[in-house]
Computed example of a mutant assay.
Amino acid sequence: MLLLPATLTVAEARDTLRMLRQGLRAQEGETLVVDAGALQRFDSSALAVLIECHRLARAWGKRFEVRHLPPKLRELAGLYGVAALVPDGAAAPGVQSGAA
């Protein structure tokens, strides 16, 4: 599981994505997991980073899951119509949210 930083705005997006990309490559298993529990300050760039992680996971034939997504970021994803691209896995361990 990879951890998002406490702050993820446009200023941190490029470096955060680089770090996540390297970590996602090293993650084993069928699901790539990112933990957003530490995320306190963010803007829409955080969604862009998570959507790119989702894209990478799909390209590598894996599922993507975000745990502990802050409610405000979940609302923002819904407002932008991209909530399905940042599936929240916090409902229960081992349960894939948003799976069809």
Rank of each mutant, 00 (worst) to 15 (best):
R55M: 02
R63E: 02
R55G: 14
E65T: 01
L85C: 08
G61K: 11
G78A: 13
W60S: 05
L76V: 12
L69D: 05
R67A: 02
F64D: 04
R74K: 15
V86P: 05
W60N: 10
L56K: 04
L56G: 06
R74M: 14
E75M: 15
P87A: 02
L73Y: 04
R74A: 15
R58V: 14
L85N: 12
G81A: 03
K72G: 13
P70L: 13
V66W: 00
K62A: 09
L69T: 15
R58K: 13
R63N: 13
R58T: 03
P71A: 05
A83F: 08
L85I: 09
R63Q: 01
K62E: 04
E75S: 09
H54D: 04
A83R: 15
R55P: 10
R67G: 01
A59S: 09
A59L: 14
P71K: 06
W60F: 07
A83S: 14
A57T: 06
G61A: 08
L76F: 05
K62R: 15
A59C: 01
G61W: 02
G81H: 10
V66Q: 05
V82L: 13
L79Q: 14
P70G: 06
K72M: 14
G81F: 07
Y80I: 07
E65D: 07
V86S: 13
K62Q: 03
E75V: 06
R67N: 07
A84Q: 08
P71L: 05
R63H: 14
P71V: 12
W60Q: 12
R67M: 10
K62Y: 11
P87M: 07
P71R: 03
P87T: 04
L56F: 03
L73R: 00
L73Q: 00
G78S: 04
L73F: 08
V82W: 10
P87V: 01
L85K: 14
L79Y: 09
L73W: 11
E65R: 03
H54C: 02
G61I: 10
A83L: 14
Y80P: 04
F64V: 03
A84I: 13
A83I: 15
R74S: 14
L73I: 09
R67P: 00
G78L: 07
G78T: 12
A77E: 03
L76E: 10
V82F: 09
R74P: 04
A77T: 01
A84S: 11
E75C: 03
R63C: 02
P70S: 12
G61Q: 15
L85S: 02
R63G: 00
A59W: 03
H54V: 07
P70C: 12
K72F: 10
P87L: 01
Y80F: 14
A84Y: 00
R74V: 02
R55Y: 09
A84W: 05
E75H: 12
R63W: 09
L73A: 05
E75Y: 10
K72P: 09
L73C: 01
P71Q: 07
H54P: 01
G78F: 01
Y80K: 08
E65Q: 04
L79H: 09
F64N: 06
L79K: 13
R55F: 11
Y80R: 12
H54Y: 04
V86R: 05
L76Y: 13
V82C: 14
E65K: 00
G81I: 04
A59V: 15
L79D: 00
A84H: 08
L56D: 02
K72L: 05
R74I: 04
V82H: 01
A59D: 07
K72Y: 07
W60T: 07
R58L: 01
W60Y: 04
P70R: 05
E65S: 11
P87H: 13
F64Q: 06
